[in-house]
């Protein structure tokens, strides 16, 4: 559901980039990337097997 929403948000961003204004496209892109980051933080919970 959340991935579907994210893909659809990027579809909307691309449609606005093609038909709409530059400003709206940039704002939608920022929103989409912020939600991508949030979804990444939700899923990236495994500990990396690394030691520095």
């Amino acid at each position: 559901m959340f991935f579907t929403g994210l893909f659809l948000l990027f579809v909307a961003t691309m449609l606005v980039a093609w038909f709409g204004t530059l400003r709206k496209a940039f704002m939608l892109f920022a929103l989409s990337m912020a939600l991508t980051g949030a979804l990444y933080l939700h899923h990236a919970t495994s500990t990396l097997p690394l030691s520095f």
Binding site: F3, F7, F10, M14, A17, M33, T36, L39, A44
Partner: peptide, 21 residues
């Protein structure tokens, strides 16, 4: 989920290219 997020990032790549067109 991380694989899907990579696909999302691929679609994000397209936005800048569409704006150039």
């Amino acid at each position: 989920p991380l694989c899907l997020l990579q696909r999302v990032a691929f679609t994000a790549l397209a936005v800048g290219l569409i704006l150039t067109l």
